[in-house]
Computed example of a mutant assay.
Amino acid sequence: MLLRALIEELDYVALQGEPDVANVTSIAFDSREVAESGLFVAITGFTVDGHHYISKAAENGAAAILVEREVELSGLPSSIVVVKVTDTRQALALASARFYDNPSKKLSLIGITGTNGKTSTTYFVKSILEEARATVGVIGTIGAMIGDTPLATKSTTPTTPESLHLQHMFSDMAHAGVDTCVMEVSSHALSLQRAAASRFRIGVFTNLTPDHLELHRTMEEYYEAKAMLFDLTSDYNVVNIDDEYGRRLSDKVRHHKAQLLTYGVVPDIPSAGFDETALPDVYATNIQYEADHTTYVAHTPVGRVDIRVNLPGLIYVYNSLAAVAAAYCQGIGLGQIAAGV
Rank of each mutant, 00 (worst) to 15 (best):
D243F: 06
I269A: 13
G246E: 02
V178D: 00
L311S: 13
A258D: 01
S171A: 15
L192R: 08
K56D: 15
H255P: 06
A189N: 00
E214F: 12
A227M: 03
L66F: 04
A14W: 00
L190W: 02
H175P: 05
C329Y: 00
N23E: 13
S320D: 04
N240P: 05
I241L: 07
T262V: 12
V182W: 03
L249N: 02
T44Y: 11
D242A: 05
R69S: 15
S74H: 12
Y289D: 11
L109V: 15
P312Q: 09
T180L: 01
E131Y: 07
M169Y: 04
E72P: 09
Y236I: 04
H52D: 15
I65F: 05
H216Q: 07
T156Q: 14
P77Y: 05
H168E: 15
T180A: 10
R32K: 13
A62K: 00
T209H: 05
P312S: 14
P158Y: 03
D292R: 13
Q288D: 12
R194K: 10
H216D: 08
E36Q: 15
L190R: 02
Y328M: 06
T160V: 07
T88V: 12
I307T: 03
N319A: 07
A152W: 10
G303S: 10
E59S: 13
Q193T: 12
G61E: 04
N237Q: 11
G203N: 05
M173G: 03
A227G: 06
P19L: 03
C329R: 01
V34D: 02
P301L: 07
T88W: 06
Q288R: 15
